[in-house]
Write a protein that binds this DNA or RNA. Structure first.
Lengths: 190, 190
DNA sequence: AAATATTGTGACCAGATGGTTACAAATTTA
DNA sequence: TAAATTTGTAACCATCTGGTCACAATATTT
């Protein structure tokens, strides 16, 4: 066996990402990661300090909601910005399975293992949505709709339909996007 | 030991509900239920046919979203009905921890164990929201907002805040209720 | 009262979990 | 080259999981 710590660390890290993406938070465990990486689990403790350290590292790397950091340097934003931004956000949400699983994880637990992870990812989300911080009805309606978008995305992994809405159809998500845009417009006109 | 099958079955069933309420879907397992009921797990297999049968029984009993069956006999409904109905629905959602955990469960898996359970609970939800079945922007916006409501309820168990919104404050939920009502009105005026 | 059926228990199984330990092999340092 | 250090493995631990089994205790039927 050749010895290469850097490569082994990468194997472990990638195994973690892979499992999270494929099996979700429920599949993430020391044994499973070690097996997937094809490596002794001792090394996860030695190099990362266990699962906790692995999650911390993931948080610090920050592949979470990566594509949405465009607005990072903006202080204020217009309604047009908000619309554009929402469109990109929902797209990211639909496409990034890793982000989906982190969001799912937040609905399951918040223990010492995951605390740092959630702390970071939430700070990311906050950045994104700091755009619109006046306490209006638009804010609440908008937040609910974004929340609903997340909910339906997570739901769609296991359930094809919600009521009479087919979550597997591309058209459905277009409709949701349209509804979001329209809501922004209507509330703005008021 | 006295022998009383009916009483034992109740002990098991109540233990299941209790665990689901306290620990969520993650805590529900044969061993945990048997221990909580203070009974040999063999009996769960013998009387219910394992966890699967237990869930099936729960679904058939249908304590899920119980308070919302008022509209069961209505065919059509007005905007006023929808508003009233939404208010009661969100209240139920906030108060019924068992319902919350079933909804959480749906975001985790959909295997042979849970299939029947979800099938039933989803039919219940469908009844409730069949009120508003025209394919308008209101429908989509409204669905997203309801979904968001569920998402925030589930999130609030582990996370106090979402962005800058404090999910532990009663005021926040009032604001969400108001936003829902207002949205219905605005879309209706259009 | 005796035979039979039902109800309940605890031991046992294989396989999984997270975590630790002792040790071997490879690489660096001296 | 020899000693020390780093890297990697595998066995082992206690504890949990779902599931089955043989058996004892209690009711019920004959």
């Amino acid at each position: 066996m050749k010895k290469n710590r850097a490569a082994t660390e990468k194997k472990i890290y990638n195994a973690f990402l892979s499992i999270l993406k494929e099996k979700g938070p429920q599949g993430v465990g020391i044994n499973a990661i070690a097996k997937e990486a094809g490596v002794s689990k001792e090394l996860i403790y030695r190099y990362f300090g266990g699962l906790k350290g692995l999650l911390l590292q993931y948080a610090q790397k920050g592949d979470f909601f990566k594509s949405l950091l465009v607005l990072d340097n903006k202080q204020q934003s217009s309604v047009e910005d908000l619309k554009q931004f929402t469109k990109e956000g929902t797209k990211e949400l639909r496409e990034n399975k890793l982000t989906q699983e982190i969001l799912r994880w937040q609905l399951l637990e918040n223990n010492s293992e995951t605390k740092e992870l959630f702390k970071y990812t939430n700070s990311q989300i906050s950045k994104i949505f700091a755009v619109n911080d006046k306490d209006t009805s638009l804010n609440h309606a908008f937040q609910l709709m974004i929340g609903g978008y997340v909910y339906f995305i997570l739901l769609s992994k296991f359930h094809k339909k919600f009521i009479n809405t087919d979550l597997s159809k591309e058209e459905t998500w277009d409709n949701f996007d349209t509804a979001l845009e329209k809501t922004i417009e209507i509330f703005n006109k008021q």
